[in-house]
Amino acid sequence: MKTLIRSAVLGTLVLGTLAGCASSDSAAVYSKSQMRQAQNVDFGTVVSVQPVRMEGRNNELLTMGGAALGGLAGSNVGRGTGAIAGSVAGAMIGGLGAQAAQRNIGGKTALEVTVRLDNGSRMISIVQEADVPLAPGQRVRVLTGGGNDRVVPM
């Protein structure tokens, strides 16, 4: 029975990890839903590029796995109502711990890119993955639309 529980938890963690890797915040990656969607294009010059840390994504499967492991560990505390209370407390602590770990461990290095648009009256800042090289003074295109704004080199 313990082997079955361990296998289920391990499977949940593996699926959760794979699901968490399925998306990107890169300026060079487009999702299927972004295909064939018009975007506005502005031209500008990069004013500054600051490295920032992008928070990891929460994955419900990993959180449930953490709660399950915490509940199993907590059930070994005491007997009777003590074991029940330990299970509940362990599940809560395991779930919260899994969420905190996902935010901290799953994060990536990103860039906060500030651009002065050519119209001169506006400056914008966009945070995106650090996989497209950008530097102050560089000419760029700013693509906006559908909440998926990005800065890309000319």
Results as ranks from 00 to 15, higher is better:
D25F: 11
L134K: 06
A85I: 13
T144R: 15
K108C: 03
A73M: 09
Q50C: 10
G82I: 01
E112H: 10
G82R: 13
N40P: 01
V152C: 02
G65Q: 06
V115E: 04
A110G: 15
G146A: 07
Q37V: 15
A89N: 03
T144D: 04
E112V: 01
I126Q: 06
G80M: 04
L61A: 14
R103K: 11
Q102C: 06
L143C: 08
V52L: 09
Q50V: 15
A22S: 15
N58Y: 10
V46N: 10
A68R: 00
P133L: 02
M154E: 15
I124S: 07
G66I: 10
M64N: 02
Q99L: 12
P51E: 08
Y30W: 14
R103Y: 06
A85G: 01
M123E: 15
V132S: 09
R116W: 02
S75L: 09
P136D: 00
A135H: 13
V115P: 08
E60Q: 10
M35D: 12
M92G: 15
I126K: 07
G137A: 02
I126Y: 01
Q102G: 05
E112M: 13
Q39E: 14
A73L: 13
I124P: 09
V47W: 05
L96I: 08
S26V: 11
K32V: 15
R116Y: 01
R122E: 14
G65C: 03
R116P: 04
D118Q: 08
E112P: 03
A73T: 09
V140S: 02
P136I: 07
T81D: 12
S26D: 13
N148I: 00
G70M: 03
E112R: 14
T109S: 09
D131P: 07
V49L: 10
G106S: 06
V132D: 10
A98W: 08
V151M: 06
Q39L: 08
Q128N: 05
A89H: 02
V88F: 07
V152D: 00
S48M: 10
G145C: 02
G56F: 05
L143R: 15
G86E: 10
G71K: 00
T63H: 06
R53S: 03
S87C: 08
T45K: 11
L69V: 15
G70A: 05
S33C: 00
S121V: 11
N59G: 04
C21K: 13
S31W: 12
P51M: 05
G70R: 08
G56T: 07
R103N: 14
S23W: 12
V88H: 00
G80K: 14
A85D: 03
V113N: 03
R79H: 12
V140C: 01
L96C: 14
I84A: 08
L61W: 11
Y30K: 14
A100N: 06
L111N: 14
V47G: 02
V52S: 12
R57P: 00
T144V: 04
N76C: 11
G74T: 00
N40W: 05
G106D: 10
L61S: 11
L96K: 07
F43M: 11
N59Q: 12
I126G: 13
G95Y: 02
V88C: 02
N76M: 12
A67H: 07
E60F: 06
G90Q: 13
S87W: 08
V127N: 15
R53K: 03
A110P: 13
R139F: 02
V49T: 13
S24W: 06
Q99V: 01
L117H: 04
N58S: 05
M54K: 14
S33I: 00
K108M: 06
A22I: 00
R57C: 00
T81N: 10
